[in-house]
Design a protein around this nucleic acid. Sequence first.
DNA 1: ATGTGC
Length: 486
Amino acid sequence: METFEAGNITLNRVDEYIWELPQTGEMRVPGRVFASEALLEEISQDKTLQQLQNSAELPGITKYAICMPDGHQGYGFPVGGVGAMDAENGCISPGAIGYDINCGVRLVKTNLRYDELRGREEELVNALFANIPSGLGGGGIVETDEATLEEILSRGVEWAVDNGWGIADDLARCEDEGSRPEADPGMVSDRAKGRGKNQVGSLGSGNHFLEVQRVTDVYDDTIASSYGLTEEQIVVLIHCGSRGLGHQVCTDYLRKIEERHTDLLNRLPDKELAAAPAGSELAAEYYQAMGAAINYAWTNRQLIMHRTRQVFEEVFERPWQELEMELLYDVAHNIGKKETHEVDGKDREFYVHRKGATRAFPAGRPEVPETYRNVGQPVIIPGSMGSGSYVLCGGERSMSLTFGSTAHGAGRLMSRTQAKREFWGGDVQDSLRDQQQIYVKAQSGATVAEEAPGVYKDVDEVVRVSNELGIGDRVARTFPVCNIKG
DNA sequence: ATGTGC
C-alpha cells in the first residue's frame, strides 16, 4: 500500500485522491484527507494532520474526521475540516465551526457583459468602495436599535426582505432560506450584541471582500444554463461573515463550555477542541446562539448585496431589475447544523460541523431549493484576488464520502505575518492593475499584502480534486475585474 | 476571522 509520511503521522492511500489516517489510541474513527499528492504535501507543512487526528477523538464523531483539499491548520480543528457528530450521543464543538460563524459567500448575477464595463472599472470600484462599509471596527449599512437587532438575530434574511433590503425570491436562493429557526437572541451576550449593533452590512477585514468578476469558462453547459451563467457575463461575489458578533459568540461559549465540561475537556488531546455533550444545556444554548450569529451573517450579506444593486443602478443608469441582478446562491463556509445522513443503511441525525467547507448537496436532496433540485445546489468557491473563483454543483459522491461537503477556497500558504514581509500592498495593487486589469481598492495596504495572490494555494488544483472526486462538480470559472476589501 | 489579548 502506498503511504505518505509526515513527521510521526503516516497516511495510507486508499484511492487516487483519498488518504486515510489510521485509527489509533483514543481516536474514535480514522481520519481522511481528500487531496492530490501535491496538495497533501502542502497540507502536511503545518499542524493540520495532527489536528485532524485530534478531532477524531471528539465524542460521537462518525465514519471519519475529514480534511478537504484546501485544508490548513485552524483553532483546534482544521480549516477545511468536516466532522459529523451524533446528535444524541455526540457533541458540538465551537472550534470545529470557527470563530467567524457563517462566514460565507454569495454570487449575484447581472446581464452585463465584460466589454460594457471595460474602461469604467475605476468608476465602479470607487462607487462600491464609497457605499459599502469595510475594514476593522464599526460602521455598517444600518445602525440597529435593540429591537431591530433582536429581529435580525431571530429571522435573518426574512427581516432584510421585510424591510426593503431585497425581494422574496432572494430567500429561496440562500442555504436554508437564509434563516435558522432555532436561533435565540436571548442566548447572545450583551457584549456580542454591543459589538454587532453597528456592523450590520459591513465587509470587515482580512480575507473578506466584494469582487466584480467576469465569467471566463463554462465547463458544463447544461448546469451553467440552469444556473443562468454564460461566458463574458459580469457577476458579483460577496465574501463576509458575522463580524464582531459571531466572534464574541464563539469566545463566550468556548469559555462556558471549558468551565462546565471540564471532564470531557480533560479527556481531549487539545483544549481548543472544547465541546458540549449532545443533550447538555450548553449544547442547546450554543446551538441557539450560533443560530443567531448565522442569521446575522446572512443579513449582513443580504444588505451588502442589495446595496450593490443600488450602486450598479447609479453607475449603469438602469434599475437593478433591468440589469437582472438575481442572486445565484448564498453558501455558508463555517457552520454547524443538524442534518440527517445515511450511515450503514440507516438514517441518523448529526451535528455536522463544517469549518472552511461548503455544503455540496446533489440533485434530489430536499434541502436544495426547488429551482436547482434537479441538478444539485450551486457551490461557490472563491480564489484569491489574482486568480479565478469557481461555481460548482453539489456532487453525487459527496453524500457517501464527505457528509455532503466540498472545499471552500484556495487555502492559505503562509501566515499573515510572513505575507507582510514578502509583499507590499501598493506594489500588489499596481501589478494586478497593470498586468491583469484587476482594480483593487482597500482600506489598508497591509490587508492587500496579507491577501496577495502569492499567499494562497492553487484554487484550480483544489477544484480539480473536488471535481475528480465527484463531491463538487466544476460548472464555471470567473476572473476578477474589481475588488474592494478591508 | 477579530475593537489582532488574558
